[in-house]
Write a protein that binds this DNA or RNA. Structure first.
Lengths: 179, 179
DNA sequence: AATAGTAGTTGGCATATACAACTATTAATA
DNA sequence: TATTAATAGTTGTATATGCCAACTACTATT
């Protein structure tokens, strides 16, 4: 199978691409960050696969539940947006949570097309328990670091996530390949 | 479906679990880190889903290819270990890469059971191109940050990944639920 | 009133992943 | 040495994830 290119329209020609040579220090940082992040992703995915099952829900369901619980209520489209998923996927993830009694679907009175996802009591409670578990684990992990470093970590990770989110939302397809 | 518990044996009772109350600042850091990391994971997964296809390979295949290329050669088990996946999954991911001509399988002479995965020239070349793309993107992203922050980010992410990896390897099941 | 747009669901498909069972090979042991 | 146990990898099976496209049911526009 030839390496087919399916990226969306408008990328390398429209984006200001940095020359690879640029600043050597920057280049090195970028290299290291790339490696570190891919390692981080893999290990966290693994951890989450293993963990979420403790409460009988999947990783995606866990994220969705958390989103809805924190928002109080959410449409399917909003959920899809928050999870960076197609609305069909969001709808099915919601299905799973509704089946388990953790979310309820409620038609909107204003707009008959809209479905509001509402957390049930059990959904809220399970979400809180999961959060607590996570918190305990993160606290344990963070306690290895000096206090200043600790708070720097969280701020930087947040900032990083934010930067990626902004980048993903604007960039459309990030594919810079032409063959 | 009742929330079934399927965690492995030996968790909350054998692990030194921090009391949730502990240090308030630590607790808050943990909370923030939890939120920031889950956002980071989601957005990166999204980005990767969209990107890897540029070279006709999937996200997992990309990680696997990178691992093998960097190591020069790797057994299926080693690959599974590095990716935190079951060996069957690793084997199938390798299948995909072999089908695409990016990896080759070679039986080990020392031990007839072992299969060495070897990158082909094309595999190596594609991997390098992907790495370069990533690097450019990361450089672009990092250029938003001050130089000191920049290098701090990469070091912290690396350290974080390392901590998680250590934790995942020792902790077995991280499930701290009893009902 | 007819047309266009939007929210959500469902169908179809491909990939991802785990676990269990299997094959082939090597190591241990009786 | 012959048998048993262990190991590396593959394959079977089942489920989850996720996209796109087609569909339904509403709402907005003209």
């Amino acid at each position: 199978m030839p390496t087919t290119i399916v990226g969306r329209e408008g990328f390398s020609t429209t984006l200001p691409i940095l020359e690879p040579a640029a600043d050597p220090a920057l280049r090195e940082d970028a290299q290291h960050l790339s490696g570190a992040l891919s390692e981080l992703i893999r290990v966290l995915q693994f951890r989450d696969r293993d963990r979420a099952c403790c409460y009988g829900i999947s990783v995606s369901q866990c994220y969705a539940l958390k989103g809805v619980v924190e928002a109080g209520a959410m449409t399917v489209n909003e959920l899809a947006g928050q999870l960076y998923l197609d609305k069909s996927t969001a709808s099915r993830i919601a299905n799973g949570l509704v089946d388990k009694g953790l979310l309820a679907r409620k038609r909107d009175h204003e707009d008959g097309r809209v479905v509001q996802l509402i957390p049930t009591l059990e959904g809220t409670s399970i979400c809180a328990r999961i959060e607590e578990d996570l918190e305990v684990e993160y606290a344990e992990l963070l306690s290895d670091f000096d206090p200043e470093i600790r708070s720097a970590i969280t701020k930087l990770v947040a900032r990083l996530a934010h930067s990626f989110a902004a980048r993903v939302e604007t960039a459309g397809g990030s594919c810079s390949v032409a063959s």
